[in-house]
Structure formats: C-alpha cells, structure tokens
Design a protein around this nucleic acid. Structure first.
Lengths: 211, 211
DNA sequence: AATTTCACCGATAGTACTATCGGTGAAATC
DNA sequence: GATTTCACCGATAGTACTATCGGTGAAATT
C-alpha cells in the first residue's frame, strides 16, 4: 500500500499503459475484429471517449503497440541471434541461435501471435510493419548463413540461402507455437528437433577447400 | 456464344458461384475485415439484399467457402500425401511427399492464404475449422512418420514425432508462401531445400535392428 | 391459361462503432 | 490565492454494415 501522490503526467502514463495492455489482451483473445475503442477503454477503466486523450485513433493505438512493444521484441531477437553467431563452431552457441529466438517468442506470447496474425492479414494496419520486419529478419539470417559459408555467387545460390532462412524462421515459429499451445512443454526438446533439422540444411554447405 | 436458356436453378447456382468467387477474391485482397455483404454482392452483380437468397448470413458464406473449396483442397493434399507414402524408400516418391502439398497450395493461393489467416485469427468464424483441419493434418503426418520407423513408445518419442510433423508442415507452407510471393519461382528448388531439411530429421530415425 | 414460386429489387429498421463536443474538477502554474 | 491546464466524463452526430420487408416479373407448375 504505497500512498499514491501521483503527478498528473504519471497518472496519464499509467492509464496509457493500461490501455495498451488491455488492447494486447483483447487482440490476443478476439483478434483485430474484436478490438474496439469501447472495449479497450472499459477494460482500462475509463470512458470510451477518454480513449482519445491518449491516442489519435485506433490505428494510432496499434502503431504504438507495435513500436513500443512488438518492435522491441523483434529487435532483441535479432541482436541476440547476431551475438550468438559470434562464436561459430561452438555447439552450445549453435543451440543458442535456436534457443534465444524461441525464448523471446515464448516470453511475449501475445506479441508473437500479433506478429503472425498481422503478417497474414492484408487488412491489418500492422500488415506492412509485419512484412517489413519479416524482410529485415530474413536478411539478417541470410547474412549469418553466408558468414557460415553458404555461397551467394549465383542467383540460384542466393535463392537457396533465402529459402533456408525462411525455413529456419518457420521451424522456430512453429515450435514456439506448439510450446505455447502446451504440446511441447520442454523448450530444450524443441531445440533438439531444430538442431536435427539444421543437420539437414548444413548438408548443403560446400566443403571448405582451405584451412 | 452459346445461347443461354438457363433454368432457374442453373441461374441461381451461377450467381452463388459468382458470390463465392467474389468473396474469395475480397478475402484475399482485404482480409476478413474487408468482407461485407455489400461488396460481395456488388462484385457478383446483385443487390446487397439479394445476398440473403443464397446464404443465411455472412458466416454461412464463409462456412460454405470452407467446405466447398477449402476443405476439399486440404483433403486432396492428405490423400495425395498418403498415396505418395505408399512407396517408401523410393527417392522420387519421397520428393513427391513434398511436391504434392506444395503444388496443391500453389494451385489455390487464395484458399491457402485463407487457411493460414483463419488459423492465426481467433476472431475468425473459420478459426475452429482451420485448427481442426490442422490437427487432422498433423495426425496424418505423424502416422506416416511412425510408419517410416519413428518410435512412439514413450511420451517423449510421441512429442518428437509431432514436432517433426509440425516442422515439416511449417517448412512446406513457408516455401509455398515464398513461391507465391515470387521469390522462389522454381518449385523444384523448393523441393530440393525441403529434401535437405528432411535429411536432418531423418538422422533422428533409429537404425533398424532387423532385415 | 391460370396459378404458384422465387430470385431479385429498393427501402429501411436496427445495431455497433468511431470520433467530436462542451462541461467539470482537480492538479499545475502563475 | 487566482488562473490555467487537461484528463476525464456523458451525450451525440456521423458512418458503415447487417438483415428484414413488401413488391415485381419471369420461370415453373398446375
């Protein structure tokens, strides 16, 4: 019971956070069609009209949700992945490249699912953001694979690395979804399977001529 | 220019098909939020109110779309996959297990994307159908994998086969998406990569003691 | 040929939601 | 202590969509 001598701006910021949190919950439970200014406001304990003291309109809320939460999540995954790839050849580091994104997705399930939904729904105000972030993510992964030794001399090479990157993302996401659905309680088992699949695409890696 | 002495029920069936086709196009371009009885009807060349001569309500339209088109697609994939697995050990049959679903997805892009969208959107009237069909699909794949030799004695075994099945679906779907986005014009290249990944999970297959 | 059926129409009642408006009181500023 | 600011409120205009209704004419049935 800390007494609450909140300043005006502190109180406002608190309400804003409640709105964002409520929006995320509603989105996760009912999808974008279920998200209305009325529901969010009621869930946050304010009148529907007061919503507009915090956001210009509904799209503004969604954009804020993306930038202040979702974008951060994806960026952290990329950074962690890049860091993990700094130690190539290390078996445990290799597991990390799967474990870290997996843990990030599982840590923020609503954001993870929001991203997937926005990616597939062309009508979502977040569709373009989701696609853009997907492109970035893929480009990062491609760079990592090239660093490991995948060739990108011909167009066909290029396409192949991109396919592998896409495949790895899809695999990781499906394991995270399975875990969140309660089917795969142990994340390490998920990493095991991801490692097994990775043995497959590594067979496409040409033998090094040097060293 | 065949003259058109259409019977009444033929004309009605034609209108119904136009409605379903228009709905599929709008869904693909704008998502479920963009689908209104007015838009579909106008696109099919009838008045908004006439929509209700063909469907009880909007959900009825979506359900019809699912059962008369989407469900058929998924069933055909399963059947083809099962048939392809009838010849185990054959390299070309193995490729078929990837090629056939891939071709089915690519053949009906709107239905494919509709399925993905419904799967991720809890607010969609098709969500439950999509999840159910996903479960069926997974179960089929698991049975195939067990037939190949994957153990399912312990709970951990069971989980692992399911993960592999999930992974294979996710991989195939991501390749199909990449092709539909124009990034992977050659489906055989997609099959190549899927085969490479499959080399990985096959390494989890225990050596047979007999024969 | 008379009668019935029904796909289609325009009009509209009903519903749900968005976004704006003027008002209020307490916090912030002067 | 007087004044200003502003987060919040209820009320409401405006918009978009759903689904129903009675009417119409041509096809189908008798």
């Amino acid at each position: 019971m800390t007494s609450t001598p909140l300043t005006r701006s502190e109180a406002k910021e608190l309400t804003r956070r409640r709105l964002l949190r409520a929006a995320l919950r509603i989105l996760d439970e009912e999808g974008e069609a279920g998200l209305t200014t009325g529901k969010v406001s009621r869930a946050a304990g304010i009148a529907q009209s007061s919503f507009y003291s915090h956001f210009r309109d509904k799209d503004d809320l969604l954009r804020s949700l993306w930038y202040e939460s979702g974008g951060r999540l994806l960026r952290s995954v990329h950074e962690a992945r890049v860091a993990a790839r700094k130690e190539p050849g290390d078996k445990e580091r290799h597991r990390d490249t799967f474990r870290i994104p997996l843990e990030a997705f599982v840590r923020y399930p609503e954001l993870f699912r929001l991203t997937l939904r926005a990616r597939h729904d062309p009508g979502s105000p977040l569709h373009d953001f989701a696609m853009e972030s997907r492109r970035t993510s893929r480009a990062t992964l491609v760079r990592d694979l090239v660093a490991i030794g995948f060739p990108e001399t011909t167009e066909a090479d290029r396409r192949q690395v991109e396919m592998i990157a896409d495949g790895l993302s899809a695999l990781t996401e499906s394991m995270a979804l399975g875990h969140l659905e309660g089917r795969y309680p142990d994340l390490e088992e998920c990493v095991d399977v991801l490692m097994a699949f990775s043995r497959g695409y590594l067979s496409l890696l040409p033998r090094r001529a040097d060293s």
